[in-house]
């Protein structure tokens, strides 16, 4: 399935909903969108991976890039993911210890508001 990207705002947070396949071919579009959001002033970003059915190392690299960029700008970055196959990818790469991972968008926003975010 093709990559889909949709952005919405929830209070201070920018939520990017990602769907489809994030791989070496589509990841540049995800990178571009995240850069647009950050350059446009978004500082509290939540990426919702709920509709992602494939994620590879290139996609993970893009997500880490956004995390670093936001951290150095004093912002926050969190991921929403509750699918076991994707969670396993985060565990195997140890990236579950790098990203704040939450089961729902609400949980991600609540955690960030209480200072538990990145």
């Amino acid at each position: 399935m093709e990559l889909s990207l949709a952005t919405r705002t929830v209070g201070e947070h920018t939520v990017l909903e990602v769907g489809g396949e994030v791989d070496v071919y589509t990841a540049p579009r995800l990178r571009e969108r995240l850069l647009e959001l950050i350059d446009g002033g978004a500082r509290r970003v939540v990426v919702d991976l709920g509709r992602v059915d494939f994620l590879d190392s290139t996609g993970l690299g893009v997500l880490v890039g956004a995390l670093k960029r936001l951290r150095s700008a004093g912002g926050s970055f969190a991921l929403v993911c509750d699918k076991e196959p994707l969670l396993k990818i985060f565990r195997i790469t140890a990236l579950d210890q790098v990203f704040p991972l939450h089961p729902t968008v609400d949980a991600a926003i609540d955690a960030d508001a209480t200072g538990a975010g990145a």
């Binding site: 190392s57 993970l60 690299g61 893009v62 880490v64 990818i89 195997i92 790469t93 990236l95």
Partner: peptide, 29 residues
């Protein structure tokens, strides 16, 4: 295997990270 604190390091390029993560996935799966 790149340790977690290495993964989040500013100095690690996205390409290097992607390569390391790619190998970690191959070896892990």
């Amino acid at each position: 295997a790149l340790p977690p604190d290495e993964l989040a390091k500013e100095s690690l390029s996205e390409d290097a990270l992607t390569t390391g993560v790619g190998f970690a996935l191959l070896a892990g799966f």
